[in-house]
């Protein structure tokens, strides 16, 4: 049972073993679409973290009252509610960052990762475990987004978080919209490479 895991393990699990972007290959749209800068990755990561944590906790609290036949509609309703909340809050208090993320904040509602976590974890586990699992998943998503943003921003614009690091633009190609596919593909291949090398080393 997953409940045996400590809180820390749940968080680490979300970031490494079950990283939503590189491991579960879910919610790829923003990973390709708006990962041009680290800042974008961070902002959307915060939004997803918020929605994931609040939805997980809500479902965990009310899990005994949710009729199994209307499980999925209830999850959708919960997620949609929290997405609306974060959408309104971001639009009101951080209009500039909100404008950069465009339609993607609203699209969190269709992210498979959140529904999946509710179905697989929050509807079965305690409130506390769901909270930590939500944090882990949210942070995992954020870390993935920021890693892609790191590569694209550094190589495309020579900056990080908006600060000039290199002083020149090495390869404009990387902030072109379609480069998102290449960066994600190459990074996945890189992680595969590490894994294969690690396994070989273990066997030897």
């Amino acid at each position: 049972m997953a409940t045996d895991k400590s809180n820390m393990q749940l968080v680490v699990n979300g970031i490494l073993n079950e990283n939503p972007i590189f491991r579960l290959v879910l919610s790829m749209c923003p990973a390709v679409g708006i990962s041009t800068t680290m800042m974008n990755g961070l902002m959307l990561g915060v939004a997803v973290l918020f929605v994931q944590v609040f939805s997980s906790v809500t479902i965990a609290i009310f899990k005994d009252y949710i009729h199994p036949r209307i499980r999925i509609p209830t999850y959708t309703l919960t997620i949609a509610t929290w997405v609306t909340v974060i959408d309104l809050v971001l639009a009101a208090f951080l209009p500039e960052a909100y404008a950069k993320m465009g339609i993607f904040v609203k699209l969190i509602v269709a992210f498979a990762i959140i529904t999946m976590r509710l179905e697989m974890f929050a509807s079965k586990e305690s409130v506390k475990a769901s909270l930590w699992d939500g944090i882990g998943m949210g942070l995992g998503f954020m870390a993935g987004m920021m890693a892609i943003g790191f590569v694209r921003e550094l190589l495309g614009m020579g900056t990080l978080m908006g600060y000039d690091i290199l002083g020149f633009k090495p390869l404009l190609f990387f902030i072109l919209p379609c480069a998102g596919f290449f960066v994600v593909g190459l990074m996945m291949a890189f992680f595969n490479y590490i894994e294969i090398a690690y396994k070989k080393a273990k066997q030897a």
Partner: peptide
Amino acid sequence: STIIIRLTLACILAGVVMGLTFIFTSNAK
């Protein structure tokens, strides 16, 4: 009937949460 009652309650709850956020944020926006 339990499904309907619970679904209605869920909708009302969701509506209240969203409505309150809207009221709080619209002026700030």
